[in-house]
Design a protein around this nucleic acid. Structure first.
Lengths: 143, 143
DNA sequence: GCTTATATTGAAAATCATTCTCAATTAGGT
DNA sequence: ACCTAATTGAGAATGATTTTCAATATAAGC
């Protein structure tokens, strides 16, 4: 799976005439081996531990590149930081966010997706993406 | 309708021991007479045209106060700016956003709301709020 | 393997939206 | 009118992200 993500990214950079660099390899490995929903800064700090000397500007740039290449997608969960999650082709999911402990749970619901399409059609919109986030407290924090 | 929003706000400030000021009156009037979804900066510029000498810090502060008072709510539509919309008690709606012309259409769908609650319950979450945005192109821009 | 053109990098400066600081002003109760 | 606390405006400060730019590294051509 990681192999194919790397493939996709290499194909993308090749097609765009971009170069393959040590930094991008390191950042990609680190991203792929990370849990979901890391913010740019969190990933930057993680990378820095293993490989000093990679600037945060490069991490910002590279994550944007991952998103362009289609192997990552940006999410904003209301804490003012952009996070990136792994993107599996054709898949889509939404988020439950615990406002107390910050836990993030993913879910997918085909019926909701379909209703969204219906709503969009009623208003003449052609939907490209959507964002659905449910904010509240998780089981542990609700106690 | 505007009268009752003013009432709600006056009740809120009174209960909190806050004072009623010229600036807050102007900002409230301007907000109430504005279209939905204005960003803080847009509202600030609109106010400035009519009443020079109101600082942007005051507009920021006052809009936050409107949100606290329950007559406005903050929304983030992915353009990096916080927008405020009129909040009608008990009502909730979501947004269709045209990524070409920036048009924003509101919609409400009871079935989706119910499904969200179901999903949350399945994961043990107690939902407080949610955010649903559909991004795509509106009828005019799709052509 | 060396040259060359171009993409990339790191560091610092710049930007953008928003918040904070603080001295000066103002509202509201007494 | 007087006092106390809330409010204001301006600018500084903040935090996340982007840009700039000179130095460096990569891929392609010879």
């Amino acid at each position: 799976m990681n192999l194919s993500k790397k493939q996709i990214f290499m194909n993308y950079t090749a097609a765009k005439g971009l170069k393959s660099t040590r930094q991008r390899d390191i950042i990609l490995d680190c991203f792929l081996s990370s849990e979901q929903h890391l913010s740019t800064e969190e990933l930057y700090l993680k990378i820095k531990k293993q490989n000093a000397g990679i600037g945060f500007a490069t991490v910002y740039r590279t994550l944007k590149l991952f998103a362009e290449a289609g192997i990552a997608s940006e999410i904003q969960l209301g804490d003012g930081q952009t996070r990136y999650e792994h993107l599996h082709a054709g898949e889509h999911h939404d988020h439950l966010v615990c406002t107390k402990c910050g836990a993030i749970v993913e879910f997918a619901n085909e019926t909701i997706e379909q209703l969204q399409k219906d709503v969009a059609q009623q208003h003449g919109f052609t939907i490209v993406t959507h964002k659905l986030e449910l904010y509240g407290t998780c089981a542990a924090c609700t106690g």
